[in-house]
Structures are given as C-alpha cells and as structure tokens.
Amino acid sequence: MIDATIVHNVHRERFEVLVDGRVIGKAAYKTYDEGGSPQRIFYHTVINEEYGGQGLAGRLAEVALNETVSEGLRIVPVCPFIKTFLTKHPEYEADTTAPTPAHLEYLSAALVPAARA
C-alpha cells in the first residue's frame, strides 16, 4: 500500500491526499451556514488516475467525514463519490443532510468566482 497522508487544507476548503508532499487527490467542499446549522457541502472528490484502485478515495472520504462530524458540522453530499460512500457507511446517516435546492444554489454561486480565478 502506498504511503499517503491525508490533511485538511482549511484555506482551500478541501481535504488532500499527499504522497511525497504532492497533492494527488482531494475532497473539496464549501461551508454552508444558512438555516442555523453549520454544514459542509462536499461537491468533488478525485484521486489522480495513476493512484487509482488503492483505496485512497475511501480513506480520504472517511477522514473528511469523520473530521466534519467531529467539528459539529452536517455532511451534505453532492459529490457522487461521497454519496456512494455514504450508502455503504450508514454510521454517518445521523450526521447527513440531503442536498436541497438552497444548497445547490449556494454551491453554484460559491463556485462561480473560483472558476474565474
């Protein structure tokens, strides 16, 4: 198994998989604090192709979701990988909120400036 480290890059709003100090994967999110309960909307998870099939995405998801829960935030799964991971891990069900149109509108507006940068 590859020697990878998973870190939370708060400033970039993502959890990263590092190999030899290089980012080879990430689980990106946006923090959503509308409606009274802070939430983390996960919208994109990716592992570089050459590192695929080694279980890194699952490890990344587990670390990201565990830290989200421990911080008292709700999980909002928009990313297909995170959605699928959650169906296989019912222990996160009590900490998960289904995406609503408000979540998707917020996410869309939040990502527009990032796409231009």
Results as ranks from 00 to 15, higher is better:
residue 1 M to Y: 00
residue 1 M to C: 09
residue 1 M to P: 12
residue 2 I to E: 15
residue 2 I to P: 15
residue 2 I to Y: 07
residue 3 D to K: 08
residue 3 D to Q: 13
residue 7 V to R: 09
residue 9 N to I: 07
residue 10 V to S: 06
residue 10 V to C: 05
residue 10 V to R: 12
residue 12 R to L: 15
residue 13 E to R: 09
residue 13 E to W: 03
residue 13 E to I: 04
residue 16 E to T: 07
residue 16 E to L: 05
residue 19 V to T: 12
residue 19 V to P: 02
residue 19 V to M: 11
residue 21 G to P: 04
residue 22 R to H: 15
residue 22 R to I: 11
residue 23 V to K: 01
residue 23 V to R: 00
residue 24 I to K: 00
residue 24 I to A: 03
residue 24 I to H: 05
residue 25 G to T: 05
residue 25 G to N: 00
residue 25 G to K: 01
residue 26 K to W: 09
residue 27 A to C: 15
residue 28 A to T: 01
residue 32 Y to G: 05
residue 32 Y to A: 01
residue 35 G to A: 08
residue 35 G to R: 00
residue 36 G to Y: 05
residue 37 S to E: 14
residue 37 S to Q: 13
residue 38 P to N: 02
residue 38 P to R: 03
residue 39 Q to E: 15
residue 39 Q to D: 01
residue 41 I to Q: 00
residue 41 I to A: 05
residue 41 I to G: 02
residue 44 H to S: 11
residue 44 H to Y: 14
residue 45 T to D: 04
residue 45 T to G: 11
residue 45 T to H: 08
residue 45 T to A: 10
residue 46 V to E: 15
residue 47 I to K: 00
residue 47 I to D: 01
residue 47 I to N: 04
residue 49 E to L: 08
residue 49 E to K: 12
residue 50 E to G: 06
residue 50 E to L: 08
residue 51 Y to M: 04
residue 52 G to P: 09
residue 54 Q to Y: 08
residue 55 G to T: 09
residue 56 L to K: 04
residue 56 L to T: 05
residue 56 L to P: 06
residue 57 A to I: 06
residue 57 A to F: 10
residue 58 G to A: 10
residue 58 G to Q: 06
residue 61 A to R: 02
residue 61 A to M: 06
residue 61 A to D: 02
residue 61 A to F: 01
residue 61 A to V: 00
residue 61 A to H: 02
residue 62 E to V: 01
residue 62 E to D: 10
residue 62 E to W: 03
residue 63 V to H: 08
residue 65 L to I: 04
residue 65 L to E: 01
residue 67 E to W: 02
residue 67 E to V: 04
residue 69 V to Q: 06
residue 70 S to K: 11
residue 71 E to A: 12
residue 71 E to R: 07
residue 73 L to C: 00
residue 74 R to G: 09
residue 74 R to V: 03
residue 75 I to A: 00
residue 76 V to N: 01
residue 77 P to E: 01
residue 77 P to G: 05
residue 77 P to N: 00
residue 78 V to I: 13
residue 78 V to Q: 08
residue 80 P to L: 08
residue 81 F to N: 08
residue 82 I to A: 04
residue 83 K to D: 06
residue 84 T to F: 10
residue 84 T to G: 12
residue 86 L to F: 10
residue 86 L to C: 05
residue 87 T to S: 15
residue 87 T to M: 12
residue 88 K to F: 14
residue 88 K to Q: 14
residue 88 K to N: 13
residue 88 K to E: 14
residue 88 K to T: 11
residue 90 P to L: 13
residue 93 E to G: 10
residue 93 E to N: 14
residue 94 A to T: 14
residue 94 A to N: 13
residue 94 A to H: 12
residue 95 D to W: 14
residue 96 T to D: 11
residue 96 T to E: 09
residue 96 T to F: 10
residue 97 T to Q: 13
residue 98 A to L: 11
residue 100 T to H: 13
residue 100 T to V: 14
residue 100 T to D: 13
residue 102 A to P: 12
residue 102 A to M: 12
residue 102 A to L: 14
residue 102 A to Y: 11
residue 103 H to W: 13
residue 105 E to W: 06
residue 105 E to D: 15
residue 106 Y to D: 05
residue 106 Y to C: 05
residue 106 Y to Q: 06
residue 106 Y to K: 04
residue 108 S to E: 14
residue 108 S to D: 13
residue 110 A to M: 11
residue 110 A to G: 07
residue 111 L to M: 07
residue 111 L to T: 03
residue 112 V to Y: 08
residue 112 V to G: 01
residue 113 P to W: 03
residue 113 P to G: 07
residue 115 A to Y: 12
residue 115 A to W: 10
residue 116 R to V: 07
residue 117 A to P: 10
residue 117 A to I: 13
